[in-house]
Design a protein around this nucleic acid. Structure first.
Lengths: 181, 181
DNA sequence: CGATGCATGTAAGCTGTTACATGATTGC
DNA sequence: GCAATCATGTAACAGCTTACATGCATCG
């Protein structure tokens, strides 16, 4: 009976996963990766990432080696055996009903209250939203095009998920637009 | 030059919208509505909703009338003119690029790190996820069927957005499943 | 040689959560 | 009459944010 490891938060899980995917990542690298990810809602601020990684290291999920010759004081992170086990648990815990249903969408939330806007404002709100989404969609497509299906299948599939999800939102919003007339 | 009202948080905006949609709602009603909404990731705990509504009332966005005859101490909430203006600003602020891109999906996040699982575990993880999503999809369909397109167009459109978004996620996950073989 | 980017970290605050506490009402 | 639900609220804490602080490296 090994004692169950603590449940990781979403950000912790993703950070650990990034360290798993990239050997010898630095904390800074993890931050950039988090921010660059398509449709990530995280700011991945220094104030969250550094304490988080220190915590993971304190719990033995990550080990770090400092390069003394490096003036910038870079520390290279590596996932430990215990860390890999924690990552696997975190992935499997995603099937929890709470997490399956949880896709908060600010555009959708606002739709419920469109009655509060004048007809004119409603129409231009939806138009603006469509433009913003289309722009974001383009970025997502560019991002996806840069990933090799052979070399990084899971990275590709994840990015593909972001794309299809955004496409679906766009189609839905176009339907909303039609209904406003 | 009217002084700009404070930016509302997502939960504040939705709560205010619920009070807008339903005249004479109680705080308890707002909580239930928040929890019942399809694909809402909010727990809408007492610890968040009551202080939040008190704050909105303190700022004059909501007014309340207590029924003295009511033993339960119910307080009926109503949106004020100032509140309606704040609601409109909140809706329009949704076009912000940050909010357009922000659709966090725990299922998608985990996909990036599926390499950490054994082949067998990968397959059963995706299968479990598919089952959980299909179950959730059924619930969403039932929910949508109970809304009248005539009487509550925006409620219908919002719920439809939740449905189509979930359907897209499901299709994507089926694609992931195919790619695992 | 100055701006930008790399790299680490801390302090304070916001927004939400869980867990608790209290009491009235309704349905069986 | 007792359980479940209605209804309000508080205290403590979790998790992430913004804003700040520091210093090295690289490029034009």
């Amino acid at each position: 009976m090994s004692s169950q490891p603590r449940k990781l938060s979403e950000l912790e899980g993703v950070a650990l996963g990034i360290i798993y995917n990239e050997q010898n990542a630095t904390a800074y690298f993890v931050r950039c990766k988090l921010r660059a990810a398509p449709s990530s809602h995280w700011r991945a601020s220094a104030g969250s990432v550094y304490p988080l990684l220190a915590r993971l290291e304190g719990e033995g999920l990550v080990s770090s080696t400092a390069d003394d010759d490096d003036g910038r004081g870079r520390k290279y992170l590596e996932i430990t055996k215990k860390g890999r086990a924690a990552l696997r648990s975190w992935i499997k815990a995603g099937v929890d009903p709470d997490l399956v249903s949880a896709t908060a969408d600010p555009a959708r939330s606002r739709t419920f209250f469109l009655a509060a806007l004048s007809k004119k404002d409603r129409v231009s709100y939806v138009e603006n939203m469509l433009h913003a989404m289309e722009k974001y969609l383009d970025e997502t497509r560019v991002h996806l095009a840069g990933i090799s299906q052979k070399d990084d299948l899971f990275g590709y599939l994840g990015a593909l998920g972001a794309l299809t999800s955004t496409e679906a939102r766009l189609e839905w919003l176009k339907h909303v637009q039609k209904r406003l007339c």
